[in-house]
Amino acid sequence: MRWIQAIFDILTNPQFYKITLTASTPFIFASLGGVFSEITGVVNIALEGIMLMGAFTSIVFTFYFGSPWLGVLMAIIVGLGMAWLHAWASIKWYGNQIVTGTALILLAQGVTGFLMEPIFGRPGQTDLIGKIEEIRVPGISEIPFIGKVIGELNPLVYIAFGAVVFSWFLIYKTVLGLRMRSVGENPEAADTLGVNVYGIRYFGVLMSGVLASLGGAFLSVGELGQFKELMTGGRGFIALAAMILGNWNPVGAMLASLLFGAAEAMNNQLQSSPILHVSASTKPLFNMLPFIVTLVVVSGFIGRTRPPAADGIPYIKE
């Protein structure tokens, strides 16, 4: 009974929905990145690593220059660099995309860990360095309940939802989008019509770098204001699951991200529920929740969604 009471309390509190939006934001960014990459035919499991680099870079530049927004900008540039490595290995050199993705994750973990001491003087985590403050949307923030959910949020949260619209428009309404979809489905056909298959694939992968890096930056300069080693904690992979569940469509990926975000928010709120008194030692059990939800949902829904036909297959001319 206490459980039902606690869950009911959480569900009726606008705080839960606000946290859901916040928790979804990294998933939305990264899963949109996944969509961009895979829709052109390149599997990118490096999302996790790119996010980590994004989180780290944005904190580093905030630390040196005091501007979190500059940090975000630099995170985008570093994300582009990581994505370029992945694109270069998998498009130009026909590398195994899953393995190069794994390599980049490891590289990101190595580089961020390695640079902690030279830059911040200690391993593990940084001090609170600075973050992007929430902004209040006049008008909306005054509406009861809804105002508490969407009236005052971190600007990056609004940007994430803007990115969904932007991605949807780019993929389904523009010439470039049509070409992206053709390249991920049948690169040979696109090639014979003079579409630059490699160029478009580079674009898709680079976009995934920008977006995943933004997702990572949100974790550090958006939410916490500090960097912790391995702070992405598997979110890149959950984002991949959101992309699959969302059927490689930006809107679908957003909805799936909201679901996984809700799981994280529920976990968070249950742990701090005044009714349940969760002890420190049982918290790990609650932390399993988002991963179990992902596992169940992915296995339940796969097969009903359809990946791009050439996803993960290097395009070799001749």
């Binding site: 010439v175 049509l178 070409r179 489905e185 049948n186 056909a189 014979t192 019509l193 003079g194 579409v195």
Partner: peptide, 17 residues
């Protein structure tokens, strides 16, 4: 050399949209 998940019109104009 056709892209299965695009329409006939989209396939025909692809590359010279």
């Amino acid at each position: 050399m056709l892209v299965d998940n695009l329409t006939v019109a989209e396939n025909i104009v692809l590359g010279s949209e």
